[in-house]
């Protein structure tokens, strides 16, 4: 059951990612990205990370991608145009992606022993466990990261602010 779901949503994820690249209209690409995010959430759920799955849907599919579609709608972006740059991306992009894929596969296969284990549908981390780790063991890094995000927000406000 878990394995079947894993293959279905894994395939959906890859199909969504391919569709994202092949579609020429930005809103279709944005919608494919939503499919990718949501199937990733299902994969997290299958691995037992329920909080992460819910956060993925709420934050990525629900908030960030809404902003993406919002901007696309606001700018009323049409179909993308072919320029010299986009042709160059074809020439350089495919070999580059192939090299990256080969490198990652090589590392994953050769270093198989040093990775941790995760089984489908067995290991369930509750939200309480997760928050215990975040707010006790990793409190300082967690808070520092939140300060970092706060700085980024303040920077965005400072840049967007009109001079009076």
């Amino acid at each position: 059951m878990h394995l079947a779901l894993f293959f279905i949503f894994g395939a959906l994820c890859v199909a969504g990612a391919l569709n994202l690249l092949l579609q020429r209209h930005p809103i279709n690409s944005a919608l494919s990205l939503i499919v990718v995010m949501s199937s990733l959430a299902v994969l997290y759920l299958l691995l037992g990370a329920e909080f992460l799955a819910a956060a993925q849907v709420i934050v990525y599919s629900g908030a960030i991608m809404v902003l993406f579609t919002f901007v696309i709608m606001l700018l009323n972006a049409g179909k993308e145009e072919r320029t010299h740059g986009s042709k160059m991306a074809y020439v350089a992009g495919f070999p580059g992606a192939a090299i990256l894929l080969g490198l990652l596969t090589f590392i994953f296969v050769s270093r198989r022993g040093s990775f941790g284990q995760a089984r489908l549908g067995e290991y369930v981390v509750t939200t309480a466990d997760l928050s215990r780790v975040l707010f006790k063991d990793l409190l300082l890094p967690f808070e520092v990261t939140s300060v970092l995000i706060l700085i980024a927000i303040l920077g965005a406000v400072a840049l967007a602010r009109k001079e009076h």
Binding site: A54, A55, I58, V66, M73, T127
Partner: peptide, 25 residues
């Protein structure tokens, strides 16, 4: 009965806005 029921309701409502956004566009 899901352990994170409240979060799932929040997630579903946050996805629901696509219906409105896409209909308008």
């Amino acid at each position: 009965d899901v352990g994170i029921g409240l979060l799932i309701i929040l997630g579903i409502t946050s996805v629901g806005v696509y219906g409105i956004a896409l209909s308008g566009w």
